[in-house]
Design a protein around this nucleic acid. Structure first.
Lengths: 241, 241
DNA sequence: CGTCAGGTTGATTAGGATCAACACAGGTGG
DNA sequence: CCACCTGTGTTGATCCTAATCAACCTGACG
């Protein structure tokens, strides 16, 4: 099941043009490439514990991870989804605030935190890229706050499917025949943690979407969206582009 | 009601040491000071509309504003609370994604967006300060996602009161006699928008906290917390410091 | 003195949580 | 090869929290 990463250097890296390194110029890029190292985690493994010292920051190269806040009484909320090209960790913070867990097999491109922080201080491009990515994440978090605060269960599921669909097609690159099958990186339970629901409610809303013809199952973890506009409608998103 | 700001320059500015300018060195600071201008808004005014072109970025000098996401059918969620020293806007984005509304009379220290963006590009300190602030906001947004996804109504109110208390005492500076009165910058309705509740539920939970002796009213918009630890307990936060 | 925004409280409803049973696929080991 | 187990997902019955609908209170202000 574990995918072997078939490259050792950044040429041919699948996230080369979207990750933190996307806007680096020649010299900066050389520095980054020199200090990077890969790490792999299998599905279910914890990448980082809340409260732990963070040894590294990293880009997700392949796989899916979640950022989670969990509390003694067992309540859990996923506060961030990490897909390929997303960044883990933050320069300037020593202690992790959240757990990071691999939900599928994950490959990371890591940088020792100390060295990376020096790079951020010294090379404006990287600081600016970090800033742009942080602000994008902040906007995404705010959209999710609306979802968690105001959307119905059905709308949450629909929004989540659209999110995955958007990220998937843009990852795989070129345009694909319209009714694309979308494979879901999360279990029903992991989705419920992300959507502020229970796994039973998630399951029920999937059934409802299927009954209404909004989605079809290729398998339990792979859906087909015959009409994206219809799904967008259910999600309560404008008919935007 | 409108407070007149009794200063023209940055000396004596109440947020000088916490805002975006906190870590600027002499030269950077001079540049920032040269390009700044003040704007005031009275309670209820909209500072920025979602979809509008952003002419400026700004620091909140005084007053309270909210960042809101609202949707055609009337649903509304406050996705950010802006208190003194918080930053509005983002370099590199032309169009606002959210509405920003003054909930009390607000004074901003503004910078033309174009000029500010140049400064971010050219002066590493400011880019790094922006990054640190953005990452702090991201953490705050993630904590709020937990609140919206998993906390009960009572816990949300308690958490909100603690948030305001924390920000208030740290704003006013020195330590104050223990049972501090905390003045609430938001109406019940504005709180409900922030907490993902209805205003009726907010009101009920206030009544419950009062009945349980966790809070007392100095007035409807000013509460006293006799025992912060007890409130923290209700909020479901650890007994942390 | 009347009006209105902000706030409280009550009665009822509804959406999702909770508790519970069952289905199904994939492994594992006898 | 089959029996068993475990992780994942579905569906049903019931309960409960917060939403909704509604009435009323209070104080500020013209």
């Amino acid at each position: 099941m574990t995918k072997i990463i078939p490259f050792r250097n950044c040429d041919g890296c699948p996230i080369r043009h979207r990750a933190i390194c996307a806007t680096c110029d020649g010299d900066e890029f050389v520095q980054l490439e020199a200090m990077k190292y890969y790490r792999s985690y299998s599905a279910g493994q914890t990448i980082m514990w809340a409260g732990d010292r963070m040894e590294f920051v990293a880009s997700v190269v392949a796989g899916t991870a979640t950022i989670q806040h969990l509390v003694e009484d067992g309540r859990k909320q996923t506060v961030g989804l990490l897909l390929p090209s997303d960044f883990i960790g933050r320069p300037g913070r020593e202690i992790a605030l959240y757990d990071v867990t691999a939900v599928s097999d994950v490959t990371l491109c890591c940088f020792r935190r100390g060295e990376f922080e020096k790079l951020v201080t010294n090379t404006p491009h990287i600081a600016q890229r970090m800033l742009a990515m942080a602000l994008d994440e902040l906007d995404a978090a705010r959209d999710w706050m609306f979802l968690l605060g105001r959307k119905t269960a059905l709308e949450r599921i629909a929004s989540f499917l659209l999110l995955i669909q958007r990220r998937t097609v843009s990852t795989d690159g070129l345009v694909v025949p319209q009714p694309t099958p979308v494979s879901l990186p999360l279990t029903r339970e992991a989705m419920s943690d992300y959507l502020g629901l229970t796994l039973e409610t998630v399951s029920r809303q999937f059934s409802k979407l299927k009954a209404d013809g909004i989605i079809e199952y290729a398998s339990k973890r792979e859906i087909i969206i015959p009409d994206v506009a219809a799904l967008r409608n259910v999600a309560g998103e404008g008919a935007a582009y």
